[in-house]
Nucleic acid binder design. Structure first.
Lengths: 192, 192
DNA sequence: CGCCAGGTTGAAGCGCTTCAACGTCTGTGG
DNA sequence: CCACAGACGTTGAAGCGCTTCAACCTGGCG
């Protein structure tokens, strides 16, 4: 149950057996069924989750339309950064796209962890730093890649997304309408 | 010279006088003249900078065209996260849009700081966390706001950008061409 | 079987881009 | 001190790609 977590943690900082065990005691397992929400915009996000199995997304709602911000698979950490860090109401919604198993850590426990074992500050730092890199990469792609280029990048760099996520969600992630993505795929299928 | 830095630091974590003084010893002042580069894509970014005065941007180059990623003014920290953190060649270019004064910290000194005074891990963490929030906000805007909405948001939330940055750079930041931004402004000036 | 979500296809429309010309301001050299 | 160059911004006309709206198809599931 904690193998994947252990690998993920150790890539960020080496831990003694005791430290890891202590970390684990702060986690609570939770299951989500497909489409079940983890967080709704407007609520305050008081926890982050390690994904043991499954797939989740966060998305924005604007004028009744959903816009997918990011997809997360097993092995990664997930939370609403803005709300979790500032205590303000969340802007993003988070829900499961597949039945999923999570390991959840409460905000208060996380702060306690930081205070009691300063070494874990490094964990928090590296976690945030990795999110920065990913987020800036995504921003750049939205800024200067065409929708078709964004789709090709996604196929190349994150095949899981193509395999496991429905087309209309991918379209929303790419910033276009499902019809447009469908036409892009057709264009690519015919030799360009 | 260090007043602004002190304010900025204290908002992230309270420091003793000694800690602050030590922090300052790791900084080197540097001046940049307008348009002078701070970093070129392809180089490895080995330093981050606090901006004491002036204005810088980072941008991407694609097929000979520049795309502005972000603008930074006095009081904020600046660096190429991807490269600084991974040691890989930078993707972004950074240069000054005005004559600027910086306080620069070397990567090695920063790691030393983390190791010697673990408390500063919290500084690094909070710095990264703030960047995450900003970056996700920008991504969201590119994803679902129209160019006109993005421009209005910018006027409302970051008037400095409108006042101090040339239109064609703002257009590039918004993901559109200068001609289009010019037309948007005209549309707004005539009552919509 | 029949419903419905997810995906495809067609036609028309709109907004941003492209290309080109022109206006304005500023700094520089004769 | 004036003239000109160059950077920056505006305006017009034509084009293209994504959107919109609508119809239709397919596969999964009650």
């Amino acid at each position: 149950m904690f193998d994947q977590l252990k690998n993920s943690l150790e890539r960020l900082l080496p831990l003694t057996r005791e430290e890891f065990v202590y970390f684990v005691t702060l986690l609570t397992p939770r299951k989500l069924t497909k489409y079940e929400p983890f967080l709704r915009a407007g609520e305050v996000c008081r926890e982050i989750a390690f994904i043991n199995q499954g797939c989740l997304r966060y998305y924005y709602l604007k004028d009744g339309d959903e816009f997918n911000g990011q997809f997360f698979f097993e092995g990664s950490w997930l939370g609403e950064y803005h709300s979790f860090l500032t205590g303000q109401p969340a802007i993003q919604y988070i829900d499961a796209l597949e039945d999923s198993q999570l390991l959840v850590m409460q905000y208060n426990d996380m702060q306690k962890l930081y205070d009691e074992i300063p070494k874990f500050e490094r964990f928090g730092r590296k976690l945030a730093e990795n999110v920065v890199i990913g987020s800036q990469y995504r921003t750049a792609s939205l800024l200067f890649d065409t929708p078709e280029e964004r789709y090709l990048k996604l196929m190349r760099e994150r095949p899981k997304v193509i395999e496991r996520i429905p087309l209309h969600h991918i379209a929303s992630y790419l910033g276009i309408k499902p019809e447009s993505l469908s036409r892009i795929r057709k264009r690519l299928a015919d030799g360009r």
